[in-house]
């Protein structure tokens, strides 16, 4: 059977999207260490970071993560191009707010904001820690790379705090629609389950968005 691009592309976006949703849970859980008092947080966060960097399984997961982001973006662009072609003339008046959520109509724009965030975020941390671009990362008392210090210094800059916190908002909207749409794209059609899924997606989006949004502010005031 020949693959149908309408299904294949959306399935790829859904699968990578769900993997990224799982990643966000792990990432936020670990970042919650930053909410602890500074001395405790520094030790635990640096030890955890070292564990991640030295674990071969995590290395594989990291590559899966880079690939997922890339595939998610590439197929989203392909989908967008096809969708634009399928709707070449726009309506003079279109009240889509009356029949669908704002987030669902603007997933591309929300995704673009998140991509900008990811790039800045990678430059701030990944490039500095893994690639050694920028100021060298010091070591803490336990001999671990002092990632906490990198985070702490970054969030002493009020503009970065604002950037990280504000961009958690489009993330929340993107996840609220994306999580439930991913399940439906992959063929989850159980009616009571779909109502449950809508609630779970909302809670998930709020927790992730609020969690990532609050951490920079808390670190700023520490």
């Amino acid at each position: 059977m020949k693959s149908n691009r309408l299904f294949f592309r959306k399935n790829m976006i859904a699968l990578t999207g769900l993997f990224l949703c799982l990643f966000l849970i792990v990432h936020l859980s670990a970042n919650c260490l930053l909410l602890l008092p500074q001395d405790t947080a520094r030790g635990l966060y640096n030890a955890y970071s070292t564990f991640l960097r030295e674990n071969p399984l995590i290395m594989v997961v990291a590559y899966a993560l880079y690939a997922s982001i890339l595939v998610h973006v590439v197929y989203a662009v392909l989908v967008l191009i096809r969708n634009r072609k399928a709707k070449p003339v726009k309506y003079a008046v279109n009240l889509h707010k009356e029949n669908s959520s704002w987030a669902s109509q603007n997933m591309g724009a929300l995704g673009a904001l998140i991509l900008i965030f990811i790039i800045v975020h990678l430059v701030n941390f990944w490039a500095r820690i893994k690639l050694g671009i920028g100021a060298e990362v010091a070591y803490d008392e336990a001999g671990n790379k002092d990632i906490y210090e990198v985070t702490y210094t970054l969030f002493q800059n009020v503009y970065y705090v604002a950037f990280y916190t504000l961009l958690a908002i489009p993330l929340g909207f993107h996840l609220h629609h994306g999580l439930q749409a991913a399940f439906k794209t992959l063929g989850f059609y159980h009616q009571p389950g779909l109502q449950w899924l809508a609630k779970v997606s909302l809670i998930y989006a709020i927790v992730i968005s609020a969690g990532f949004g609050i951490i920079p502010i808390v670190v700023y005031f520490q």
Partner: peptide, 11 residues
């Protein structure tokens, strides 16, 4: 036929 992808807006 050139229809687009479904993104479950629900409209």
């Amino acid at each position: 036929e050139g229809f687009g992808h479904c993104s479950f807006t629900g409209a």
